[in-house]
Design a protein around this nucleic acid. Structure first.
Lengths: 153, 153
DNA sequence: ACTGAAACAAACCCATC
DNA sequence: GATGGGTTTGTTTCAGT
């Protein structure tokens, strides 16, 4: 994957509606080779998917909460159950297993505090949790799906 | 915005490559009215943009870090400077002002721990910070851009 | 408000150089 | 990788019901 591929990826992660010919022109390639590169990047899974990004506010999903979790029971069964349940909750848009004192970190998107409380009660009902810390966002200053390709060699 | 609009949005946030005719069929609409709805949703900004999602691992961006920050100086000038600097850092893919004891929370995507250290040094050099807590992800169990539309009325 | 069907643009996939 | 052409697919627009 060379510099041109990365430039193509950067363009596409900023604007997925760009025409192949358009992209080709910006990276100094004609249509066919540019199209072939994009095909390859898709086949290789570097381009995972193409999606529409929606405005959470306009959909009444104004609240983002970050949740740090320490589980109470580290047995395989309990963990499996926890991971499975969390993964299928659509309010959970991000779910990470963490290093250090916190076991898991979630990013949760809900309409409001009331809806978060409903979610929270479901969350603590899955398996025993030792500690749960909810941090509420009051302003989404920046939020992007664009990965930092430019900072790379 | 009715049930059909939300169904269209859900389809598009899962797969932005779907043809209008295809979407129409799935929501029980023919091409033209379906197209008009999508146009309206785009004009209204409900659909913010269409992008390609890339695989961070395949791009050598394997490390996600969540950073909780308490600033040391709450003067307007200092805050403005901080917000401006953080917003323009491409490694920062998410940047929230928070309620409670933590002032700001960042999601940072970098190649590795070494690269994070470089970022960290830049971060603490912007303005005086009272406290910075970095939590490292060891596994991205779930990560989606799809908002929970289904849970709504 | 939906249908059908044009007109147009773009993606896709060949050759050949 | 460029060029050019040809097929196919999807978008966009418009007339009709």
């Amino acid at each position: 994957m060379d510099r041109i591929d990365r430039k193509i990826l950067d363009l596409l992660q900023q604007d997925g509606t760009l025409a192949v010919a358009d992209i080709g022109q910006r990276v100094g390639l004609s249509q066919t080779p540019c199209w072939k590169r994009i095909q390859r990047l898709e086949a290789d899974g570097v381009i995972q998917r193409r999606v529409a990004l929606l405005d959470p506010e306009k959909l009444g999903l104004g609240l983002t909460v970050f949740v740090c979790i320490e589980v109470g029971d580290h047995s395989q069964d309990s963990i499996d159950c926890f991971i499975n349940a969390i993964s299928t909750m659509s309010e959970v848009v991000e779910f990470h297993r963490m290093a250090g004192d916190v076991d898991y970190l979630l990013r949760v998107v809900v309409p409001d505090v009331k809806a978060y409380d409903v979610f929270y009660k479901r969350l603590i009902g899955i398996v025993p949790l030792k500690n749960v810390c909810s941090r509420f966002s009051v302003e989404r200053v920046k939020s992007t799906t664009a990965l930092p390709i430019d900072t790379m060699t």
